[in-house]
């Protein structure tokens, strides 16, 4: 069963639908025309480029190019996480890269090599979209974890210093903020799993059904991807925060002022 293509005239019609929210926002006095225009344009251009590139990648199906694509996604995610978390890349880029690379490669390898087992382990049709989906969700979790952790620490500077004065090591003194940050990062995934299928039909499952898969196969893939997202987000956030502690503090266990990006 083939998915019905959306031809250009009907795509134009689809873009026309944006006029409705634009008009409503305008009536509310929210002048967001520029932001909406840029966002819709960026989405279209970026996805078109990805479309071309993926088509080429799938046809080529070369392990090196597939690996290069994943590496590029990881690098973009690395800098995006730090920018959104308000931290300077100079101090945290390596820690974040190690954390997300390890957790994404681990969960994607687990899923592809041991669970799905395609004929070619590097098959672009599997590893590219699956690692991309896991990374996208993992990215969100890492932004929340880093932002929450370092903003709590800055806000509770006196409390942190009190813990140090009461005999805590750096690890003991940050433990409360560490736990809170990890909890905040993985909560959306846990809540998402609990309501999956009730509140909304998940995107990947919908895509597979539209693509002609049996609903049961789509359900199994959705469960697989959610478990991998949960695993990799938990792993990445814990590793990332742990590694970040090495560069965020001076030798006297004081949070270095210069690691926070004040402009973000």
């Amino acid at each position: 069963m083939e998915t019905l293509d959306i031809e250009l005239p009907r795509m134009t019609l689809l873009y026309g639908l944006c006029l409705l929210p634009w008009l409503l926002l305008r009536m509310l006095g929210l002048l967001l025309s520029r932001d909406i225009g840029i966002s819709v344009l960026r989405m279209s251009v970026q996805l078109a480029l990805v479309g071309f590139y993926l088509k080429w990648l799938f046809e080529l199906n070369n392990p090196w190019f597939n690996g290069l694509w994943i590496l590029m996604m990881l690098l973009v995610a690395d800098f995006s996480i730090l920018r959104r978390a308000g931290l300077k890349a100079r101090y945290f880029a390596l820690a974040t890269f190690i954390a997300i690379a390890f957790s994404i490669l681990f969960s994607t390898a687990f899923l592809v090599l041991w669970v799905i087992r395609p004929a070619l382990f590097y098959d672009a049709r599997y590893i590219v979209p699956l690692s991309g989906m896991i990374l996208g969700n993992c990215l969100q979790g890492n932004v929340i974890a880093l932002e929450r952790f370092y903003s709590s620490l800055s806000k509770n500077e006196n409390e942190y210093a009190t813990f140090l004065m009461l005999g805590a090591t750096r690890i003991e003194a940050v433990r409360t903020y560490f736990r809170d940050a990890i909890k905040a990062a993985i909560n959306p995934t846990i809540a998402g799993m609990a309501t999956m299928g009730l509140v909304s039909l998940p995107g990947m499952m919908t895509g597979q059904i539209l693509g002609g898969s049996e609903p049961w196969v789509a359900v199994k893939y959705q469960i697989a991807i959610m478990i991998c997202i949960f695993t990799s987000t938990t792993l990445a956030t814990i590793i990332n925060l742990k590694l970040s502690l090495n560069s965020a503090f001076n030798d006297f266990d004081v949070l270095r002022d210069e690691v926070i990006d004040k402009q973000s």
Binding site: F163, L166, G167, A168, T169, E172
Partner: peptide, 9 residues
């Protein structure tokens, strides 16, 4: 009792 939760005490 907080300080006595830390390894040092």
């Amino acid at each position: 009792l907080l300080p006595f939760q830390f390894k040092a005490h």
